Simulated assay, not measured.
Amino acid sequence: MDVQHSPRIWSDFPELAAGVLLAEGITADAAPDLDRFTAIAKERLAAGTEADLPEIQAWRRAFSKMGLKPTQYRCAAESLLRRFRKEGSLPRIHPLIDLCNAVSLAYAIPVAVFDRARVAGSMEVRHAYGDETYLTFGGEVERPEPGEVIFADAERRAHARRWSNRQSGHSAVRESTGAVLIVAEAMHGTARADVEALTAALAEELSRTWSARPETSIRSS
């Protein structure tokens, strides 16, 4: 598969479980089933807020361990759930992004989606050296802080900053995207089982909507 986690990541976060999918044949004119996933999210949020969910609590602990204030830098799943709880829906961006956001809501697990053609070589989740480049969605170039957890490719381009906090505009899915790399990561008590369920559900919907046959892999320490 095209993504791996560094030995230090596994050492520092042995509770981590990751699901990886590679899929081709993605188009921007599809209509995935989002309702069944958002219904699950609504049911879970009816009993409290996203901060009460064990999946989110685990990521908050991870952010604290990385020296980040969890309420200032939130994992992507928490940000989505927070917006969904307040607004009742999420904006539509691209069918695949919409699907992955809905799945992320249902499982409270961050799901990163990358345009495979925009990633040089393989991807590694690792600590930054400080010389990597990160392109924001606004077109600005940033350099991650040394030691910050990033998604880095072979050209030392950072495709995500602060691990599951913010993705790069460089490899964002767009209308021309055909092949994608999808990564789901969790650290709570039932992380591996839930990541397996999420990966299976996402693979099923990719097959149904795009007739894709995604390659999948589950990793844990």
Score class of each variant (00 low, 15 high):
A77P: 00
L90W: 09
R156S: 10
F84G: 05
D131C: 07
L68T: 03
C75L: 01
G138P: 00
L81G: 11
I109A: 10
R156Q: 13
A154H: 07
K69N: 14
E124R: 13
P144F: 01
V111A: 01
C75K: 07
R157F: 14
V149C: 01
D98R: 10
P91D: 05
G121E: 11
N101Y: 05
F84I: 04
A108T: 08
R82K: 14
R126T: 11
F114N: 03
T71K: 14
A108E: 02
G138L: 10
S89E: 14
G130W: 01
G67H: 09
Y107Q: 04
G67M: 09
T136M: 05
L96C: 07
R83W: 04
S122N: 14
P91A: 14
A77M: 08
G139S: 02
H94G: 04
A117V: 04
L81P: 00
S104P: 12
F84S: 02
P146I: 05
E142N: 00
D131K: 06
C75Q: 12
G67W: 07
A120Q: 11
A62D: 00
C75M: 04
F137Q: 08
R116P: 01
E148H: 01
R156P: 02
D131T: 11
R92Q: 14
V125P: 03
G147K: 03
L135K: 09
I93M: 14
E142Y: 11
A108L: 01
T133M: 10
F151P: 00
V113G: 02
S89D: 12
V113I: 13
G147W: 00
R116S: 07
S104T: 11
K65R: 08
F151W: 11
P144R: 00
